[in-house]
């Protein structure tokens, strides 16, 4: 979508803001930002430093620059933990989860906000409340369900006889496809969306699905960006569910691959850090890609692109 009016207006705002904002203020903010970023990244810098340190020198010095830098840990990470394959598995699961979460819970949240129906509030709270139960409690029932999915993995129509979705990518993605918190998030986001748009479109005879997909979804780019980032991160970070649901090396996700270096009492620090740094990169790319949706801000057109 392009909106020449919006662009015009924004440039007007920009020039006005420039007049209002003393340079001193900007420098102050830049300094604050750089300091915040450095402080937040400090532990991460140490991870990177350790990733380049030979294992036997790990934690030997406080210096951020390794004395004898090596790439050996990255080799170990890729070969021993079979990291490429784990990245591939996690990426597939995460992408499916991102697509599903950007549609299903967003649509529901939209409806809860804009198209309430009798009992919708209760239903909304009921769905979201499931997030307040610790995974420890729901892990085993979910595992039993993954095993009992009908017609999957040799199961009959009643879910008996086979292994269901155990040890498959489908099984890994099972709990992530619709995150209840995303319904909540979408509802909050759409609660400030202008209702008049829908009313106007209805008068024009547009169907409800079209109104959502053509009118509101394009307005919700920051929401979609957040949902995408969170859905991706959630899959990427989870350990317990993939641990339980998979049993072969072929199905390992990235966190399971990292666990290779986390033997109790015998942690391999340097390869662990190397693998962790590698594993961080894809999420970072997903974030970088999606954060471009946060463009409007104070001075840019809110409907650019």
């Amino acid at each position: 979508m392009t909106a020449p009016t919006a662009t015009l207006r924004s440039s007007a705002v920009r020039s006005k803001r420039r007049g209002m904002n003393p340079r001193r203020n900007r420098v102050g903010m830049a300094v604050a930002l750089v300091l915040a970023a450095l402080a937040v990244l400090l532990p991460f810098f140490w991870m990177i430093s350790l990733a380049f340190t030979p294992e036997k020198d790990a934690f030997r010095s406080v210096s951020l620059v390794p004395a004898n830098p090596t790439l050996e840990n990255f080799g170990t990470a890729f070969i021993d933990a079979n990291l490429l394959h784990a990245l591939y598995n996690s990426a597939i699961v995460a992408l499916v989860a991102v697509i599903a979460n950007c549609i299903i819970p967003v649509l529901a949240g939209y409806a809860f906000a804009m198209m309430p129906f009798p009992g919708s509030t209760a239903m909304f709270f009921g769905l979201v409340a499931t997030s307040a139960i610790p995974v420890s409690v729901t892990l085993i029932p979910l595992f039993l369900m993954a095993k009992g999915i009908p017609l999957a993995g040799g199961n009959d129509i009643f879910g008996h006889g086979g292994s269901g979705l155990l040890d498959t990518l489908g099984g890994i993605m099972l709990p992530y496809l619709v995150a209840p918190m995303n319904i909540f998030l979408a509802r909050q986001y759409f609660s400030t969306a202008p209702a008049e748009l829908a009313e106007a479109a209805r008068i024009d005879g547009a169907g409800e699905l079209r109104i959502f997909f053509r009118v509101y979804l394009p307005l919700a780019r920051p929401l979609i960006a957040v949902v995408a980032i969170f859905a991706f991160t959630a899959v990427w970070d989870d350990f317990l569910w993939p641990l339980v649901v998979t049993s072969s090396t072929e199905m390992q996700t990235v966190q399971l691959a990292l666990a290779r270096f986390l033997a109790s009492g015998n942690v391999q620090y340097a390869p662990l850090m190397a693998a962790s740094v590698i594993v961080t990169i894809p999420v970072l790319l997903v974030f970088l890609f999606n954060q471009r949706s946060f463009i409007s801000g104070l001075s840019d057109g809110s409907v650019k692109g």
Binding site: L139, I140, F143, K147, L243, A259, A263, S264
Partner: peptide, 17 residues
């Protein structure tokens, strides 16, 4: 790893796998 075995085994025994 030791720390993860109990979790794995609990689920597996409950499901007969």
């Amino acid at each position: 790893d030791w720390g993860d075995l109990s979790t794995k085994l609990n689920a597996a025994f409950a499901a007969g796998t």
